[in-house]
Amino acid sequence: MQTPRFFWLGLALLLFVHMGWASGLPLRITVLGDSLTAGYGLAAREAFPAQLERALQKAGYRVLVQNAGVSGDTSAGGLARLDWSLAARPDLMIVELGANDALRGLDPELTHKNLDAILTRLKAAGVPALLTGMKAPRNLGPDYYTKFDRLYPELAERHAVPFYPFFLEGVAGRAELNQADGLHPNTKGVALIVGKMLPLIAEQLKRLNLRGASLK
């Protein structure tokens, strides 16, 4: 008996859809940050976003990581260019801002206000966020650095977003992992940061069940 024509058409359609689902589209992750993520003093391929992209791809994720870091940027600068970063329609945005606020001794309340606005707008846009924390220089005194340091966990709790407490964890203060200025990670320092953050980022991708978020 001859197989009905619609059977083959249906089978072809099913295979087409399955292949589309299997191939998927790459995840788009945007890193909104300052010089620490922009890759100050490093080749573009050694900056945090590029190293993160390679690490996630090695772990089996099909991702594209956009570098939206601008050297010297404050939290206010990040807020001002948020719409530009959202134009890329990211599936996840990593927010790394505030280091320059502290270096300039800006009021922690202003940093809190700007980061709060960023996280609020991301939520309204339906873009999941991951917040990274920063610590103020201790020479600014305990009153300042206590207020500054604690604004990050407070915001993470308020907005219920994944939180990495200190972006420079394991790197700050270690000469062998920093450039000559003692402030910016070198290639090895960035690699260490990526390695420490990778489980949290991967967990977030799996939890959100984003398209293409599959491990080997």
Rank of each mutant, 00 (worst) to 15 (best):
R150M: 07
P128M: 10
A213R: 06
L140M: 14
D34T: 10
K206E: 15
R5S: 06
L140Y: 15
F6A: 04
L36S: 13
L130T: 04
Y164L: 14
V161C: 03
A175Y: 03
D91R: 08
L200G: 07
D181V: 00
L15E: 01
T146I: 05
S71M: 02
E53W: 02
L198E: 09
L103D: 08
I193A: 04
R81H: 09
L210C: 06
L205I: 10
L119S: 06
Y164H: 12
D107R: 12
I193P: 05
E109R: 11
N209V: 02
G33D: 06
R5W: 00
P128I: 10
G98H: 10
A22V: 11
L115P: 11
Y40F: 15
A202Y: 00
L97P: 06
D101A: 12
G195E: 13
F148P: 09
G20K: 01
T37L: 06
L11G: 09
T111G: 11
A68F: 09
L106I: 05
A99V: 13
A22L: 13
H112E: 13
P90Q: 11
L97W: 07
R45T: 11
S71N: 12
G24C: 07
N178C: 06
I193R: 03
M197S: 09
M134W: 03
F6C: 00
G33M: 10
F48L: 09
P4W: 07
E169V: 00
S75D: 03
G195W: 04
D107H: 11
W8A: 06
D181H: 00
R89F: 01
R45H: 12
P165K: 14
H184C: 11
